[in-house]
Amino acid sequence: MEAVITVIGRDAVGILAKVCTGCAQVNVNVEEVTQRILRGTFAMIMLVDLSNASVDFTTFAEKMSAIGTQLGVDIRCTRQELYDAMHKV
């Protein structure tokens, strides 16, 4: 199962490192990362594979959200199908 992690907020040192560490801790593989600074706002999008994850999706999403709170950024974790449904005909 693939999911999309979005990180939006103020840029800070170590965001990518902390999110990747969080993924590695529960055996979630990072497949793709794109990162941009939009008018001072940090926006990072990661595609991750949860098929061998050691925790279920909800626990993983909560873990990511907690990392976000720690870093002062908004981290959301969403199944990719949502974006496909909304943006592809």
């Binding site: 999309v4 979005t6 793709e32 794109t34 999008i45 959301r76 909304m86 943006h87």
Partner: peptide, 16 residues
């Protein structure tokens, strides 16, 4: 392949 604009568009619609 990730389309950044589409994803940010959805996140903005939901959060803001």
């Amino acid at each position: 392949m990730l389309d950044t604009n589409d994803i940010l568009d959805t996140i903005r619609m939901i959060s803001d």
